[in-house]
Each structure stands twice: as C-alpha cells, then as structure tokens.
C-alpha cells in the first residue's frame, strides 16, 4: 500500500532557503509549502495542519520558538524541526524543552534535513 504523502511547511524569512529546500524535499513525493512570513505561515497552519514544520528561529515578526509553541499547542503530533544560523547550546536546549523534534545549524545540506524528516515521518507513522 502506498504511504500517505507528508505535508511539510518550511518557514524562513530568507527567500533562498525555501527556494532551495522545496525541490529537495519534494523529491520524496511529499507536499511542501514555503513561507517567508511566520504570521502567514501560522494562519495557513490554522486552516490546515501540517505533519512537519521546518522553521528558522530569528525572524522579524514572530520567532521560531514562538511558532514552535503555537504549533505544539494546536497540533501536538506535528513534528517541528528548528533550523538556525545562530545555533548555541542554550537555544538548542530551549527548543528541545519546548518540544522541538530536532535542531540543526545552518548551513546544512538538504540531505541532512531529509534524514531528520525521514526519522520524523517514521515516528508519525508508528
């Protein structure tokens, strides 16, 4: 039986990140939507939840940790993966405490993110 396609949301205010990740993540046949504005992304999530959310931390209107908290409150089964160019032990620990599934420092290879998504998908389907 064919596995259900995953719905993946990518949020990063740097346009290039979404542009690069979308085709890389769609390779596995999953549905990927990208957003540069965290508020718009949350509004979209409220309309229709996603299985996996990949979000940057430092963004202007709303930061990634707040997005993580809101998504966890609304949809506890959604796996939130944090990506950041400003990784520190403190931020990583805060993200994990608040329920992030994983945390990866930028720059990373799309393959690294695909590996994390593979693990997240395994947990979602378990």
């Amino acid at each position: 039986m064919e596995e259900k396609k995953l719905k993946i949301m990518v949020i990063d205010d740097e346009n290039i990140v979404g542009k690069r990740l979308k085709p890389a993540l769609e390779k596995t046949g999953d549905i990927v939507e990208t957003f540069e504005d965290g508020e718009k992304a949350l509004a979209r999530f409220n309309e229709s939840p996603f299985d996996i959310v990949v979000t940057d931390i430092r963004m202007e209107k709303i930061d990634g940790i707040e997005i993580l908290e809101q998504i966890n409150a609304k949809s506890p089964h959604t796996k939130v993966i944090i990506i950041t160019g400003y990784a520190t032990v403190e931020v990583a620990r805060e993200a994990l405490s608040k329920g992030a599934f994983d945390f990866i420092a930028k720059p990373f290879k799309p393959g690294d993110l695909r590996e994390i998504i593979k693990r997240a998908s395994k947990e979602l389907r378990a």
Binding site: A92, L96, S97, F103, I104
Partner: peptide, 13 residues
Amino acid sequence: SYRKFQPITYSMK
C-alpha cells in the same frame, strides 16, 4: 532524562 539533554543533529555534529 530532561528532553533538553537528548542528542540532536546539531549536538552530534
């Protein structure tokens, strides 16, 4: 056992 001390991609790298 706190979640914050679990290995993640960033910490393993």
